[in-house]
Amino acid sequence: MEMREKGRGDLKEAPSFHPIASSPVQIPRRAFLCTAAVFAATAFTKTAGSIAAEAHLPFIEIADGVFVRYGVQEEMSAANCGAIANIGFIVGDESVAVIDTGTTLQQGAALREAVASVTSRPVSHLIATHVHPDHCFGHAAFSDLPVHSIGHRNLPRALAERGPFYLKRLAEISPDFSDTAYVAPEETVSDTMRIDLGNRPLLLKAWPPAHTDNDLTVFDERTGLLWAADLLFAGRLPTLDGSLTGWLAALDVLLSPDVRQVVPGHGQVSDGVETLQEELAYLTRLRDGVRAAIDEGLDMSATLARLEDDNQLDWLLYDTNHGRNVVAAYTELEWE
């Protein structure tokens, strides 16, 4: 989209479309603590002084120098503080790279504290895997540090377009989120970029449109760990916000032979193989079902009705996201 300077005169033509949130479901605190208790021992639990207790979920060392905070497998809500995505950091011999910062300023601050509790080495790189607020809206917690802030070539545009909408949504979920702001990356990746944390090279890769049109992955050569972010969903239904055919193509090559461990955007760390197979199966069936419906002349409503309960298996949050995926697939595939 072309951008050019315009005066205030265009203001009336510049409304944003923001659906009002349905009242967030209050997850009982007890249930939530059960989920949190599953997390393993190398945890750096912080005492929470505010309602933002969940911003202080533990960071777990899942590989040598690689720390992950697992998000809860729920929709964003006031009760879970929006801590629904996997975020974390990688420690090199000289410095630290932060990969995603969570949904809020508090989560970003908690991440910063977690880094400080593990190492005195400075944060040199702040990486955003994509535009979604559960991944990179804690970035402002690092604004006072001289870091390389990096994202996909398309991320600044996506943040500019969607950022204000996401902030409104967050403020609607909880007034405690209203001090959150988004920060665009200063350096962008068009294809690949290599950074080094001191004897710890990371390969950043910008993908063609897949989960979104601004997906970035991080490969840690030392451990063979791929931080796939939302190119891979484990357990929780993948959400389509980019290109279905592009995502399927990305999955074909995501797990190169040197990948030994994968951090998905949501759900458990693993070797990635089974997770990828499950996601591939869901997205393939979604594509085939929607394609067939379009070929038969079914409109969007009829397609939704036909595929409403299709392809369900054991996915978490199927009911909240599957229908939207059908709509997204339909609007993409009808142009094939």
Partner: peptide, 17 residues
């Protein structure tokens, strides 16, 4: 009609395309 867009922002999913 209840809009429950969640995080589906009203923007192009694949901008360049």
């Amino acid at each position: 009609v209840k809009a429950s867009g969640g995080c589906s922002a009203p923007a192009s999913k694949d901008h360049d395309l």
